[in-house]
Design a protein around this nucleic acid. Structure first.
Lengths: 219, 219
DNA sequence: TACATTTTTTAGACAAGCCTAAAAATATTT
DNA sequence: AAATATTTTTAGGCTTGTCTAAAAAATGTA
């Protein structure tokens, strides 16, 4: 099928395009993949030859339908494995990403399907990211950033936009997990910090930096 | 750590040495790995440089303690993943090997340990092969070949020495699974075939070719 | 518009793993 | 012991994916 490296390139380009980046440029791919722009150009040419993306010199790249399919399938496998590690093996949500980076490249459609079934067809991974369906459809979540939410509504912690271990460990420390319910009691215009009330009348304060990486939905 | 390819070479050399082959020669490694003798020589030199095996030109190879450790760890991971696929995902015993060939190279000691615990510390894989312990000890099984067993003893089907899908599927067809109990009722000197009696007075006939690949233990 | 800066591509090189063909060493026959 | 056959190694080359340094194109600025 496709190599470990090819899958990683496709996945990276897919993710960059999802993040709203209109034209995906060489440097941003290189940065994510911790490689050099020259290497990216080389690989891009190969992927273009294989009709996995469209490429015009100096104009950036865009995935073809086929490339998108491969990328989404890799994301699907990544997120299913994260569920397995978290739900079944009891890894922390800050530990699953690195291992899933390896497992996502295991090549067996039957394995993916059986894993999906074993996990009881999860819709979201341990970070709240949606799991693409077998045929490549991703149900878009209507999550909003905590920093954009209005006071007095009941909010449910539903995801994160920063997936680094250090951020997730910070949330562990203050017991913020998916499903935690809260209400904003105060929004501070000066520094963008936010105060919330949890069940049991506990309150928490978030700096803007934290609040902009927490995804919530209105209950 | 070590590459996918390096692990496969070490595992192959380990298995050949377990099979009693005194000096492991280039051609036999090449045959197992479906590659060419010249390629094997190249890789052997690299593994010798890394002190994973001892190599003298034209004299074959032998694993060092370190090389043995890497090989056994790979075997351990392979067999644990086979248990996972068989016990949890309900793959057939004829389907697990190929996928475990990929999974055995996932690099995370914590993952291996947690998988071991999740599976409740299995001692044998779905084919009856023993699973090495975390510190590399393999409990030797006292299995004997069905073709060498004596009549009238109660025998328990405990493993196979042929791991090919076609052989395992043949056993499926005649409902021979691990744990099946039987008694030899007849040994035919002429062609080496064997008749056995199962519980419920069912009887089965095995050709020598089949009987020599079935491992049993005396109850 | 012309100059300076940034981004992207090209050119040439390297390591890992593999190959074929030929040479060298070992093993087997006679 | 010599001749033959087999096995192993060497030599040189290929592909994948990477790199650095330099050239080319695009972008930003005076």
């Amino acid at each position: 099928m496709y190599s470990y490296t090819e899958e990683n390139y496709l996945k990276t380009i897919y993710k960059l395009s999802e993040q709203g980046n209109e034209s995906i440029n060489t440097n941003s791919i290189a940065e994510v993949l911790q490689t050099k722009a020259a290497s990216v150009t080389d690989m891009i040419k190969k992927l273009a030859d294989k009709k996995l993306l469209n490429y015009e010199k100096y104009k950036g790249v865009a995935l073809t339908e086929r490339g998108r399919k491969v990328a989404i399938d890799t994301v699907r496998k990544h997120r299913l494995w994260e569920c397995f590690l978290y739900d079944k093996l009891k890894f922390g949500w800050d530990e699953v990403h690195e291992i899933a980076e390896q497992l996502e490249h295991i090549n067996s459609e039957l394995l993916t399907d059986k894993l999906d079934e074993f996990l009881d067809f999860p819709t979201h991974d341990p970070h709240g990211d949606p799991i693409p369906s077998k045929n490549g459809v991703i149900k878009k979540s209507n999550f909003i950033l905590l920093c954009d939410a209005k006071p007095n509504q009941i909010l449910v912690m539903s995801g994160v936009s920063d997936h680094t271990a250090v951020f997730l460990q910070h949330l562990n420390k203050i017991s913020m997990v998916l499903g935690t319910e809260m209400q904003i009691t105060e929004k501070n215009d000066y520094d963008g910090s936010i105060a919330v009330k949890l069940s049991g009348n506990k309150s928490l304060y978030f700096s803007k930096d934290v609040a902009k990486n927490i995804l919530v939905k209105v209950k």
